[in-house]
């Protein structure tokens, strides 16, 4: 059995409009599983529900329907039984390192507080020593130097490292990283990615890596799911999805992914319009209005995930060159 399992996960937000209440389906019937030590990349544009999904997995956002299980035990049960222990099991790294930390506290206060709350270490001195060791391990040298500083005195890359150190203090077995590098400069992104990979290697932590950047995700994840308006449209091994994309949305994303080489010419997939993320009922495939190969059936009937090859699945009626007129 997989370590983490999400089954039929849904999230609806109530929207009050001029014509009464309606619901916005932020996450719609999401299923996946994650083994211990596996990294899953979740890719999508803004508003596709990827962050909501991440927050639901660790109980920061209530689940509307469906369930999440850790080692076969339900998330709600785990949280009710002992929230503190659950927080030690599942942690999160946030997108913006500049507002992850309280601005008026020194790093020492911020980091030791975590250990105090979770009863790690007998006294302050022991906690401090432990903290110094963790910082050194994370490449923040000299560690003494960092403890007495305030968040505003540190750079984005350093703050994000500290944020990861703090999340890993309790040795969680599951980590959600929500766009951990998108606020950082390119030259320090690699460090953060490598740091996360290192953690996985050493502690066998399972991770969900949320990103809008396909190329970055490729370097860290074992498997990828692509989301569009709350639904998973394609899932599979990293190379399967990126080198043999099946869903037209994945194809479009890949075709617009920037390349540094000016000589490389990529054929771009036409995607008119913009994602409609409004409230209300939808019928059919949510990508159909922008899809270059949509047929009548796409507008009537929601496609189901179908297996393309071992481990690679996609939700599209027109996959594999089925005709447009069908």
């Amino acid at each position: 059995m997989a370590y983490l399992e999400a089954e039929h996960l849904c999230k609806k937000y109530m929207v009050r409009g001029s014509n009464g209440k309606s619901f916005l389906q932020a996450v719609d019937d999401v299923n996946f599983s994650l083994e211990q030590g596996e990294i899953l990349g979740v890719i999508g544009e803004s508003g596709c529900g990827k962050s909501t999904l991440g927050r639901m997995l660790i109980g920061l956002e209530p689940i509307t329907s469906g369930r999440v299980t850790y080692d076969g035990r339900k998330l709600e049960g785990l949280m009710k039984e002992d929230l503190r222990r659950f927080r030690g099991m599942a942690q999160m790294v946030f997108q913006n390192p500049f507002d992850t930390f309280p601005p008026k506290q020194t790093m020492q206060n911020i980091l030791l507080r975590v250990m105090k709350i979770h009863h790690i270490g007998a006294d302050k001195e022991e906690r401090r020593q432990r903290c110094l060791r963790l910082l050194e391990e994370a490449g923040l040298k000299p560690a003494e130097d960092f403890l007495n500083r305030y968040p505003h005195e540190l750079s984005g890359g350093q703050l994000q490292r500290l944020s990861i150190v703090r999340s890993m203090m309790l040795s969680p077995s599951f980590l959600v990283a929500d766009e951990p590098v998108s606020m950082l400069d390119v030259s320090v992104r690699a460090d953060i990615i490598n740091m996360l990979m290192d953690i996985r290697k050493k502690k066998n932590t399972a991770m969900v890596f949320i990103s809008h950047d396909l190329a970055t995700t490729r370097y860290i994840s074992d498997r990828i799911v692509v989301m569009y308006l709350g639904r998973i449209v394609e899932s599979g091994g990293t190379d399967q999805v990126l080198h043999n994309p099946q869903h037209p949305y994945t194809k479009a994303l890949l075709s617009y992914c920037g390349s540094v080489d000016p000589r490389e010419k990529r054929e771009q997939v036409e995607v008119p319009g913009e994602a409609f993320a409004g409230a209300g009922e939808r019928s059919g495939c949510s990508f159909a209005p922008r899809c270059f190969m949509a047929c009548g059936r796409c507008f009537r009937e929601q496609p189901r995930m179908e297996t393309v090859e071992e481990g690679h699945r996609a939700a599209c009626h027109c996959m594999g060159g089925k005709s447009k007129t069908e």
Binding site: Y219, L254, S259
Partner: peptide, 17 residues
């Protein structure tokens, strides 16, 4: 700077910052 830019295709080596 060019070395730390992730590539979509080609060999998947460790990213260098």
């Amino acid at each position: 700077l060019l070395g730390s830019f992730p590539l979509l295709y080609g060999e998947r080596e460790n990213l260098k910052g």
